[in-house]
Structure formats: structure tokens, C-alpha cells
């Protein structure tokens, strides 16, 4: 049985998809941000591997092929960016300035935290992309020499927190304009923030969806500079 799993191309992929579907099901049933499909899927697969004594390498035999689609899927974010930009074009200056300020705030926070807690350079670059969409964040972390699985974990937790507390945070900062709300949610909490923004309204959702791609690209540039600071 072990050998069969070890050579199987489809076991790893199937269990990943199945776990994600289970996550989507939980999310639909309980509608709580903590039931993030990706979070559930990761915990589910880890639990299965531990329960049956299957090692990570065996799981990766098939699952590593999923990464083939990563680049084409990330490139497809251009379509999202293009579509969402159309209705918001006239306010592009305010929107881009806000997203840039957010991406910069994130980098400064990580830098301050790295100095306070004495991070290694590896830990520092692992945390730098934590506010952006996983597609860009994971690749960026790997490129700078970070631990990409920890980056993925940090990104998911950021998204869950951002989704759960978005309304309180926006109220705290007295943000009432729909565009500004969307920009805040998308810049801080990527797709999870956008899911919340879509519940609030169409403009909020579009602005947030736009911020996913834009803040990702801004963060790449900012991280290039910030990776030299520590």
C-alpha cells in the first residue's frame, strides 16, 4: 500500500482537491472566517498524513505537479486587474496612492518587528510578503530565500484576521467611502478581505479585487528594496 501511494501520481492531487472541497463545504455551512477553505485543506491533509503515517515526500509525488499551474494562474490575475480597473479608472491616483501606502506600512511593520525580535534575514524575508495574495507572496518569498510554507501560513492567517475584523478596523479609522473601504480590505487581507468587501457592496468588492493584484506588484518592488535593510 505504501509503495502504491509512493508511486501514485494522483493520490496527492486528489487528496488536496478533496480537502479543499471539504473546506468550501465547511465555509458554506458555518459561514465563519476561521473556516477558510485553504486553512481547512492544509489542516485536513496534514491530519491524514499523520494519521496514516504517510510522509510529506510521498504526498508530494503527485501534489508537486499542482505547482505547474501556479505561473499561468498568477499570470491570469492580469485579467482580474484589467477588469476591475475599468470602473475605477477615474480615481486611479487616490486608489494607487492608498494601496502603495498600505504596502509600505506592511514592510515597515515587518522591519520594526524584525529589529524588535531579532529575526534572522531568512525569517525577515519570509514575513515580508505576508499581506499579499498567496500566488505572488509565495513566489516572492522563495525568490528572496524565505521559507515559502511559512509565508503561506502567515498569508492565510492574515486573510482570516482581516476578514473577521474588517468592519471594526474600518470603523476605528472612520473609513466610510466605499472605494476606500475596498482598498483597505484588499490591501491588508487579499482575497479574504475581498470576500468580505463583496458582501458590503459592488464598489467595495471591485476596489478590493483591484488591490489584490496592485498591492502584490507594489510589494514585490518594495520588498526588493526592504530586503537590503535587514
Amino acid at each position: 500500500m505504501k509503495e502504491l501511494l509512493h508511486d501514485s501520481l494522483f493520490f496527492g492531487i486528489f487528496i488536496s482537491l478533496f480537502a479543499y472541497e471539504a473546506g468550501v463545504f465547511c465555509k458554506r455551512k458555518w459561514k465563519l472566517a476561521i473556516f477558510h477553505p485553504l486553512l481547512i485543506a492544509i489542516v485536513f491533509v496534514i491530519a491524514v498524513l499523520l494519521a496514516f503515517g504517510i510522509d510529506y515526500e510521498t504526498y508530494l509525488t503527485g501534489a508537486r505537479h499542482l505547482s505547474f499551474l501556479l505561473t499561468p494562474a498568477t499570470v491570469s490575475l492580469a485579467v482580474l486587474l484589467y477588469e476591475k480597473l475599468q470602473p475605477l479608472k477615474k480615481n486611479w491616483k487616490a486608489i494607487f496612492a492608498g494601496i502603495f501606502a498600505g504596502a509600505l506600512t506592511n514592510a515597515v511593520c515587518v522591519l520594526v518587528c524584525a529589529v524588535l525580535f531579532g529575526f534572522t534575514h531568512e525569517q525577515y524575508v519570509t514575513m515580508l510578503p505576508k499581506s499579499i495574495t498567496t500566488a505572488i507572496g509565495m513566489a516572492l518569498s522563495k525568490e528572496m530565500g524565505g521559507v515559502s510554507s511559512i509565508t503561506v501560513g502567515a498569508i492565510v492567517i492574515t486573510g482570516v484576521l482581516g476578514n473577521m475584523f474588517a468592519e471594526e478596523i474600518l470603523r476605528l479609522f472612520r473609513i466610510t467611502e466605499p472605494e476606500a473601504k475596498g482598498i483597505g480590505m484588499g490591501t491588508a487581507a487579499h482575497a479574504m478581505g475581498t470576500a468580505k468587501a463583496m458582501e458590503l457592496g459592488e464598489t467595495e468588492g471591485a476596489a478590493s479585487g483591484l488591490s489584490i493584484a496592485v498591492s502584490g506588484v507594489f510589494t514585490v518592488v518594495i520588498a526588493l528594496i526592504f530586503s537590503k535593510f535587514y
Binding site: 492608498g98 484576521l161 479609522f173 472605494e179 483597505g184 490591501t187
Partner: peptide, 25 residues
Amino acid sequence: PAILLISVSTVLVMGISGRVTQRLL
């Protein structure tokens, strides 16, 4: 440290990016 960093920075990033956009709008 990561949990602390994530909690604080998520609040600040959301607040600051939203405020800047709102002010310019």
C-alpha cells in the same frame, strides 16, 4: 512574534491604505 506582527500590521495596513484613499477621494 509572527502572530503579534500579523495582528498589528493587518490593522495598520487596512487603516492607513483606506485613510489615504479616502482623503485623496
